[in-house]
Design a protein around this nucleic acid. Structure first.
Length: 436
RNA sequence: GCCCCGGUAGUGUAGCGGCCUAUCAUCCGAGCCUGUCGAGCUCGGGACUCGGGUCCGAAUCCCGACCGGGGCGCCA
């Protein structure tokens, strides 16, 4: 079988077999045009009534979105889009589509996201929807290329776990034979554990599960988390450098590897030159205050603050990407593994990387000293016994280390200006959606 | 968890007490048309989420259920 984009000037006059979905049938009476869509695009099948009345009748009676193969001859044509059309001799219906369609592929009316997701396979027949996932794949490819080049080893850690890493996010409980277990909300404990192993630069790209009752355009219950961890660092700055490298190189990779997809989606990416601005938490608060927002030092930026800071950074510093650094300990208290400044225990080296007012990365240097770590865990009222596997590694040679979590779909969402994170997930899971 | 908002043909919508045997588009069907590519033209088809209530009268108002959208909080 020949794909539509494999038909060239050399094909003219030659026999060909094409296959795909009947996107549209234009019956003009004596001549009909059938638009057959495949992965490469659309090829026009032109059938004349006078040359084969039976074939004409059969082909113009097909239902839209049926799958066919068509044998015919390639003909150069000025009128046909792409310059070629196929004059059919015979065709075979591989699978007829029912009518009406649950969702139009080329209809001139919109459809709600909910309707689209309920019929995702049909929704994905639109090339602009498929383009999102090609961009996503190119993004992951760019990320892997960069990290491999920097000596990082890709790992996979359990998604069925006995205890959670963070206090804030809630866990999905599951039955694990005769035990109670949870779906992992983060590989945090495992990637830190690995820092004591000698695999001291690792990353993982895997699903993470959050049972938060969040109902927003940037939250889902199952998302793809890129987690990075590296040892023998001197400060959080070493960690930020990796985050920056990932974004910069993947952004540049996407602009070349997914050029046509970006064009189709109407997105222009200009990879911002590193280093990305570093704004301390304190500076961020001051910026917001001077812009008129009612906020005080010690307050969480909140969604409003994050968005406003995004506007300020874009307007005044032409920065779409920027770090917010040195988060105060008071805001990271639940992050028991965060290292605090020895000279000023009220601040951490923790940072966020924001993309146009949206947090996509969060991380920093971890606390690797057993005594300090356990003290911070006690402060959080944690039962140390439940974390013995984790803590043990800190008693037998744990180097200084740090890392971050990176929301892949949030990144793609911001990159493509998608109105909803669900657009960047094939089959999203959220508070209410479990099917398909 | 809190706060708003919405559910009308397959799809997207208008209507918001009687003018609704419900608008428009898309879609589907029939017909005309040999160059369509948002094809065009004619004719036809298809819907008020469910259950209570108010009222002479409910798609429209009230209550409940179910389903969905958005914002906040939290976070990736």
């Amino acid at each position: 079988m020949t794909y539509s984009d494999q038909i060239t000037s050399e094909s003219a006059g030659n026999p060909v077999t094409v296959g795909g979905w009947v996107q549209d049938i234009r019956n003009l009476g004596g001549i009909a045009f059938i638009q057959l869509r495949d992965r490469g695009g659309v090829v026009q099948i032109t059938v004349l009534k006078k040359s084969d009345p039976a074939l004409f009748k059969e082909m113009t009676s097909l239902t839209r979105e049926s799958v066919l193969t068509v044998k015919g001859t390639v003909k150069e044509s000025k009128e046909a889009k792409g310059g070629y059309e196929v004059l059919p001799e015979e065709f075979e219906v591989l699978n007829a589509a029912e009518s009406p369609l649950p969702l139009g592929v080329v209809d001139k009316v919109g459809a709600d996201l909910d309707t689209r997701l309920n019929n995702r396979f049909m929704d994905l027949r639109k090339e602009e929807v498929r383009a999102i996932f090609r961009v996503r794949a190119a993004t992951l490819d760019g990320i892997r290329r960069y990290l491999s080049g920097e000596g990082f080893v890709e790992v996979t850690t359990p998604k069925i776990v006995a205890a959670g890493a963070e206090g804030g996010a809630t866990l999905f409980p599951i039955k694990y034979f005769d035990k109670n277990a949870y779906l992992a909300q983060s590989p945090q404990l495992y990637k830190q554990n690995l820092m004591a192993s000698g695999l001291d630069r690792i990353f993982e790209i895997a699903p993470a599960y959050r049972a938060e009752a969040s109902d927003t355009v940037r939250h889902i219950a199952e998302f793809t988390s890129l987690d990075v961890e590296l040892a023998f660092i001197e400060s959080s700055e070493d960690v930020m450098a990796v985050a920056e490298g990932i974004v910069d190189s993947s952004l540049r990779h996407v602009t070349t590897a997914a050029r046509s997809e970006l064009e189709l989606l109407g997105v222009e990416i200009e990879a911002q030159k590193p280093p990305y601005p570093r704004v301390t938490y304190k500076e961020a608060i001051d910026l917001l205050k001077s812009d008129g927002m009612e906020i005080d030092h010690g307050d969480d930026l909140g969604t409003e603050g994050e968005k406003l800071l995004g506007d300020i950074m874009l307007d005044k510093h032409s920065a779409e990407l920027y770090f917010i650094t040195q988060f105060p300990t008071s805001l990271k208290r639940g992050t028991f593994y965060a290292m605090r400044d020895d000279d000023d225990p009220d601040v951490t080296g923790y940072f966020d990387l924001d993309y146009r007012g949206q947090e996509i990365v969060s991380g920093g240097q971890r606390e690797h000293r057993y005594e300090v770590l356990t003290e911070q865990m006690r402060e959080n009222g944690m039962d140390l016994g439940s974390f013995e596997f984790y803590l043990k590694a800190f008693r037998y040679g744990m180097p200084p280390h740090g890392g971050f979590g990176f929301g892949v779909e949030r990144y793609v969402q911001k990159m493509l200006n998608l109105p909803n994170i669900r657009e960047a997930v094939l089959y999203p899971r959220d508070r209410v959606r479990l099917i398909p």
